[in-house]
Design a protein around this nucleic acid. Structure first.
Lengths: 341, 341
DNA sequence: TGTGACGTGAGTAACGTTTTCCACTATGTT
DNA sequence: AACATAGTGGAAAACGTTACTCACGTCACA
């Protein structure tokens, strides 16, 4: 015998004195195996340390693999979502595998195709920026749940936060503190579809709408950059250079707020003394004592849990109509926002 | 024809009027396909949008998949390593898939086995805590590179930072600033093997050695917790409760230093005015302006690049003797450390 | 004019599962 | 006694690739 050939279902079957069909049934808890058969087979599996080959399985049935695509690794909000995913998947036979795609459309396509090639049983896409066409294509091939992107599709379920309302919470809070000159830093977006579907666009809309509702339409001031620390830094620099400086900055994401704080520090200013700053996501950054950022909790953990729930459901019955789950955000008030002086 | 059966190699072969063998050869750039054959086949592939099934491939040959195991998602240092990995793998046909295992041995075993089950072509383990026995078992089944864990094995290559020296850099720096009462927060470790192999243990050793070299053996003071923000918080609380408070705290990782700063803030203290604080890893946290943490750069990006290099090499020739790459750390001086007053 | 050697292509047997049958027995039911 | 029914278990055909082997020319060289 070879140094250590992998144990296959055939070895188990022979060892237990049954057919491979029987072993397969036991492995999958499928119908048609008597209790005695089950124990006999399980014993053999245990004894030989058998583990089924996902490759072979994938050729006929399931691979017991769920793929999760992340836009990037450094935004801790995604870790929150992932916690929810893995927690809810912990008890099952499914294994989660992730891939990060560097926030770029080519990368997204590459990753989703890689996941389809690997015949994953289900895919969770987090804040994908790909064209709708591509998303549909993926979803038609593999059960898919899209997290953090609005829009209704007959092919995939969605889990989102009510970003429009969340932005309103922040503006309300700042207005309540007496601010009027409230600026916003957004992730630039031009594509008409994404303008309707991406959280960043909806937050910007929510900001505009809330400002207008408060009669502050004239003070609307948006810096267009990206949802990264670098983007926050650059956006803040733009805003600080205005003839009339804002008294509060609503950054579209915590990571953006980090960049804002960075720029403030560099300019010799600080929050909330000189300028109030708020973020979005309630990541560990925000909770960090020395920062203590006012932000919006969009319950990443819950989003993850819901995504898995929908996904498993869809894997079970691919035909069912799609669902859209929208979670309500809550404002977390901390120390970077204060009454205007 | 079915709604949309997946295109297979047979379809391509028929469409191009050649054998499946030929198509397979072209896909793999294998020997034995004339230029005309290549163009003919490539055209058919293009036209039909063929993508090979990884499951079927895995049954015979390679899956073109590299697995990366991370201890957790929230420590941005791992993102640095991953950048190096994906960057160096970008040009190849390989796809990276990650899994995070919550810093627990059971989870590690589950993930490594999942990766073996899925017949990945290679595995990169980042700071694994599993028993040596398990690592060997994995490495004997699949080409493996271990990152961030010292120790020599005949079965896997390693890429590490010179943690012992890195700790020395920090102590030297603090001593140079006049500090004598320098405390350390370590990740608790009891297992004798891991005490020799894990970076956290080596950093603690390096700390002790450097203190003694400076004649400060009597001031050695270690709080044993974990390499998490929570661990840093608890460790700092312990240290602040000492009859004689340290004047400087060397946290074993940036994320730990975050917890320390958190605890200081809570206690109404700040760095470096009251206590100097240093970390390790030079993550984005540390570079963040308002924090500006003195730390040690262990070149995560380079570690990732080297890991991939070794891995691809080993996939190419599984027999070659194993290599151990050790990178030299450098001190990054920022604003959380200052001369003692 | 053999005779290797090489280049080119195809046929076919794996690879390790799952799935779709089918056969057989025991147990009720008319 | 004949007949449906449910419960068990197995045989064999997929699934989509790659690796191995062989056949057929062509060419160079003795």
């Amino acid at each position: 015998m070879h140094p250590s050939r992998r144990i296959t279902i055939v070895d188990v079957a022979r060892h237990a004195g049954v057919s491979t069909t029987a072993v397969s049934k036991v492995m999958r808890n499928a119908y048609g195996a008597s209790p005695e058969m089950q124990t006999k087979v399980r014993a053999a599996i245990e004894e030989l340390g058998y583990r089924p080959s996902a490759a072979a399985r994938g050729l006929r049935g399931q691979t017991y693999t769920i793929g999760v695509m992340l836009p990037e690794m450094r935004n801790p909000f995604f870790a929150d979502i992932l916690d929810g995913v893995t927690e809810h998947l912990g008890g099952t036979d499914y294994q989660v595998l992730m891939a990060a795609c560097c926030n770029d459309e080519k990368g997204e396509v590459r990753i989703t195709e890689a996941m389809m090639d690997r015949s994953m049983d289900g895919i969770i896409l987090i804040a994908p920026i790909s064209s709708r066409r591509h998303l549909q294509k993926v979803a038609r091939a593999v059960p898919t749940v899209v997290v953090g992107r609005h829009g209704h599709s007959p092919d995939y379920d969605t889990v989102t936060d009510d970003d429009f309302a969340g932005a309103g919470l922040v503006v309300d809070h700042l207005v309540g503190l007496g601010h009027r000159r409230i600026a916003h830093i957004e992730h630039a977006e031009k594509d008409p579809v994404r303008l309707k579907e991406m959280p960043n666009a909806l937050r910007a809309d929510g900001y505009r709408y809330a400002m207008q509702s408060h009669g502050l339409g004239d003070y609307i001031d948006i810096a267009s950059t990206t949802y990264t620390q670098q983007g926050g830094y650059l956006g803040a620099q733009q805003l600080l250079a205005r003839a009339q400086r804002p008294t509060a900055i609503f950054a579209g994401a915590d990571i953006v707020a980090m960049g804002v704080l960075d720029a403030l520090t560099e300019a010799g200013l600080s929050a909330p003394e000189d300028i109030s700053v708020a973020g979005y996501d309630d990541t560990m950054f925000a909770a960090f004592g020395p920062i203590s950022l006012t932000t919006v909790d969009q319950a990443g953990h819950q989003m993850g849990v819901n995504a898995v729930r929908l996904l498993l459901d869809r894997i079970g019955s691919r035909g069912r109509p799609t669902a859209q789950i929208k979670l309500s955000p809550t404002l977390i008030t901390r120390r970077t926002t204060a009454p205007i002086r």
